[in-house]
């Protein structure tokens, strides 16, 4: 902000406004045992990790346990993160999703797993104090999901949010497994391109 830097210069503080460290930088600091960076990383990603766990597991107490396991794993294994292979947020959410799916598969037998696959558009925005750029990113995800065909949408949603295997997804949707694998693939390709993710 020009006004801020002007007053900074006036006070003799370095004129270059230093932007707060991003998630990648924070995670690399966590790898070096930096507690404060761990707290800051939690503040940045905690709501995404908890929200994803809630979406997959539904039970709030269980989701909280999983979110705790995820962040403890992040603390312990941060040195494995390689920024050349993707964003810190992606790394953490990949860990979170796998743990959430493993938990839901352990907890629920196939018979009592809920057979719904509606795409509820996530919690209301006022639940989470989001930055503008995050809000835009989340709106983009919703818009891109709406651009999928019905079968792509259902296949991805059942697998990703219900923790179904592709074989279970195929059974629920009454399609054969190779069709489901293909729909997952072309659905992901369409989402990737819609979100402008580098392939």
């Amino acid at each position: 902000m020009p006004a801020a830097s002007r007053s900074n210069r006036h006070l003799g503080v370095a004129a270059e406004p230093t932007s707060p460290p991003g998630d990648d930088e924070l995670l690399q600091r966590v790898a070096r045992g930096d507690d404060a960076a761990f707290g800051a990383l939690y503040d940045s990603l905690g709501s995404s990790v908890y929200g994803l766990a809630r979406r997959v597991i539904r039970d709030p107490a269980r989701a909280e346990e999983v979110a705790q396991e995820v962040f403890l794993q992040v603390w312990q294994t941060a040195a494995r993160f390689d920024p050349a292979r993707g964003r810190a947020k992606s790394w953490v959410l990949t860990l979170a999703h796998r743990r959430a799916v493993d938990a839901v598969r352990r907890d629920q037998s196939a018979t009592n797993r809920e057979r719904t696959y509606d795409w509820t558009p996530g919690p209301d925005h006022d639940v989470v104090d989001e930055t503008v750029s995050l809000r835009l990113e989340h709106e983009q995800v919703r818009r891109c999901m709406e651009g999928l065909t019905e079968l792509q949408h259902e296949a991805i949603t059942l697998a990703y949010f219900q923790g179904y295997t592709y074989a279970e997804t195929a059974e629920v949707l009454g399609a054969n497994t190779s069709t489901i694998k293909t729909r997952m693939r072309d659905g992901l390709v369409r989402l990737r391109d819609c979100m402008g993710v580098e392939s």
Partner: peptide, 26 residues
């Protein structure tokens, strides 16, 4: 690219966690 795409779907589910979680983790 696929992992980044999936994690964006996951990230869009953000929900505020219980405040005790942060203290416990620290």
């Amino acid at each position: 690219g696929f992992a980044e795409t999936a994690s964006r779907i996951g990230g869009a589910q953000a929900e505020t966690p219980p405040p005790e979680l942060r203290d416990r983790l620290m």
